[in-house]
């Protein structure tokens, strides 16, 4: 199974942000998604995860094979580390959370409420969730935010282990994780605001009509 994206156009609020995207991600591969802030990396990842429909083009994999990790970790502050993780494991039909706790160095924090975790510890718990989903394709949106150097290494190790086990990861990040990876820059695919399908076609018509009405 391979993630193949062909001629994909993704939109935010009905306005295309990236047009004609194409890349592939085979099992065992890691792709680093690069691009400046606001270039549409998150929109692309949300589209691949099935949270919003693509405007055009095709995605070869169903969203059921994809585990998505967003900026927000989806943690409940009143629940403990174990309860949070066990919930996501149960939702995904897996049971083993011990390995994930150990992999993200959370074993000593297991009974602490998530409210009392530091930002980096919360992030680690959010990433541990990926390990319990049991899904092969990881889509990670800025996974290393608020992680210290040791935790980044821990995270890189977890991704390495996942990839070595036949998984794959698409990571939007600005830092070098020190792993072998292809780089995919979204810059060249930025939607041209002046194309007919581009942004504001409706707004332009509306503006023209509005101007006409005023005159």
């Amino acid at each position: 199974m391979e993630l193949v994206v062909r001629n994909l156009t993704v939109a935010r609020g009905g306005v295309p942000v990236l047009v004609g995207l194409g890349f592939r991600l085979a099992p065992g591969g890691v792709v680093m998604l690069r691009g400046p802030n606001g270039s549409g990396k998150t929109t692309l990842l949300r589209t691949l995860a099935g949270l919003q429909p693509p405007m055009d083009g095709e995605i070869s994999l169903p969203p059921e094979t994809i585990a998505y990790a967003a900026h927000a970790d989806g943690l409940k502050s009143q629940l403990t580390v174990t309860e949070n993780l066990a919930f996501w494991a149960a939702v995904h039909g897996t049971r083993d959370i011990e390995a994930a706790l150990v992999a993200m160095n959370l074993a000593s924090l297991r009974d602490r409420p998530a409210a009392n975790l530091s930002a980096g510890q919360k992030r680690r718990l959010g990433l541990a969730r990926l390990l319990v989903t049991g899904r092969p394709f990881w889509l990670l949106d800025e996974p290393t935010v608020s992680l210290d150097t040791a935790s980044v290494a821990l995270f890189a190790e977890a991704v390495g282990a996942h990839v070595a086990g036949g998984g794959a990861a698409l990571i939007a990040t600005h830092i070098d994780l020190g792993m072998e990876a292809e780089v995919f820059d979204v810059g060249p695919f930025k939607a041209d605001p002046d194309t007919p399908a581009g942004s504001g076609a409706f707004d332009r018509d509306f503006d023209a009509a509005f101007d006409g009405a005023i005159q």
Binding site: R46, A49, G50, L51, P63, E64, I66, A67, Y68, A70, H71, A72, D73, G74, L75, K76, S77, W88, V91, H92, G93, R129, T133
Partner: peptide, 14 residues
């Protein structure tokens, strides 16, 4: 919605 759980639930097998 605020803590991101809803996104993750929407991508979960449920």
């Amino acid at each position: 919605f605020e803590d991101g759980s809803l996104d993750l639930l929407a991508t979960a097998p449920l």
